[in-house]
Design a binder for these strands. Structure first.
Lengths: 248, 248
DNA sequence: TTCATATTCTCAATTTTTGAGAATATAAGC
DNA sequence: GCTTATATTCTCAAAAATTGAGAATATGAA
């Protein structure tokens, strides 16, 4: 095993169910001798990617929290959209959770969440959680705006072909509604956000209880999301011009 | 440059002021040939540690957000203390920001923050932000509980000697108050949290406007923080026993 | 102290990385 | 379509780093 992947293999051992590991356990899990595992852990330790917990057990280190903060401070979508996200949740007027989600590398990932104070349900999403690529309004709103070449790369030719018509319709509508596709009893409403210059394809979505989606209210939320998403696009373009306009 | 550090050197280029880089810029900044830089970036890309932004620019990738989520879900201090942190802010009854801070690797780092709705000031702290080691109530409450050997390793012999008496007093008091040590006009109040079994040394602190710290109120907040910190220690020990008690 | 376990060290064989430049993509303009 | 400029990958022998087994040291508790 070579280069970076040898380190990442260790880091990927850590999980919610197994948050701490001894070096012996790592060596075992990866099938490498202990001396090698110790060297690897020592390197990770010195970079802050793991820390010693106690009694020879190790856990993920502070570097991840710091780098995450950096992404929070610099992500153009968050800068343009976090404030609006909270406003949308407030204006929705019913119990709901708002999500900002983004195609990120090869994943569709939630990068910001905001629950209304009266939201009694807890949707399974939050910052840092990868979402299923082809299910749910949030992801579909994103896939619908993907150039077909990239879509194929992401989900494969067959899956892309199977979804082509549905996505074309969503693209025309500029909006996506899904009922119970992910959580039973919950519905997702999502509007796409695209900024070519930043290479950004994302969506703003709202998760609400299905039974609250009467006709008129659904229409109101649709308009709310679409206009909020458009406002985010405007801010993204503005931020980008500022960057280019400023002296290098 | 060898092994992991060669990759970290690239990642550490990214900052709030320079959130995106071209490969040529990286190669320049690090003094390596472009072909080498391209190979390094390709590896980082495939692990999700960087992503392509647009037009040959790269930014930090989704892996950091995912790993951060994992630390949020598994950090024993956060599991034991996040709820209490919010209660403390609520019960404080004045505009304030509550912080959970932890000795993390070689840094003192804030891992959770909660502002009261009426807090009009914005303290310079938040999750993922390293704090100055030897300044501010938050850090001092932690240093006071550090075994002197580790203290020396952390801040050096001279600095450790210079602080020895002050820290001994803080240790006896079980509490730390600092006025304007970090932000002019703000005061920090902090109580230590220690859990040997988890190898955890931390503090719970409250940032308030200095002028609001009348005598009686200061005393009330002191007691609030100390009892909340103790409750966290209790929960930490409970969580630890559950872990040990459960079948492997 | 003594034991048990955690961690680092040693060294030759093996594998990876490096750098310079050539060879390919890729995208924009004509 | 072609042309140009730039981005990215590839090639290959020399240089450097990693590997694995085990010995040598810490470290901490009894």
């Amino acid at each position: 095993m070579a280069g970076l992947s040898r380190y990442m293999a260790v880091l990927r051992l850590f999980s919610e169910g197994a948050p701490t590991w001894t070096v012996a356990e790592m060596a075992d899990a990866l099938g490498v001798p202990q001396s090698t595992a110790y060297r690897t852990v020592r390197d990770l330790l010195s970079e802050g990617l793991v820390e010693m917990s106690s009694e020879a057990r190790y856990r993920l280190g502070p570097a991840f929290i710091e780098f995450d903060r950096l992404t929070r401070l610099t992500d153009p979508l968050l800068l343009a959209g976090n404030e609006i996200l909270h406003e949308v949740v407030k204006e929705a007027g019913i119990p709901c959770v708002g999500l900002l989600t983004r195609l990120y590398g090869r994943e569709v990932m939630c990068i910001a969440d905001a629950a209304s104070p009266d939201a009694s349900f807890s949707p399974s999403y939050e910052r840092g959680r990868p979402m299923p690529l082809t299910q749910g309004a949030t992801s579909k709103a994103i896939l619908a705006r993907l150039p077909s070449k990239r879509l194929v790369k992401l989900i494969g030719r067959e899956a892309a072909d199977a979804m082509r018509e549905e996505l074309a319709a969503l693209r025309r509508a500029g909006f996506c509604l899904g009922r119970g596709e992910i959580d039973e009893g919950l519905a997702g409403l999502a509007a796409p956000i695209v900024c070519e210059a930043e290479g950004l394809i994302a969506s703003l979505s709202l998760v609400v209880e299905s039974h609250r989606l009467a006709g008129a209210r659904e229409e109101r939320l649709r308009l709310l999301l679409i206009s909020a998403a458009q406002e985010m696009e405007v801010r993204l373009r503005a931020a980008e011009h500022i960057k280019e306009g400023s002296p290098a």
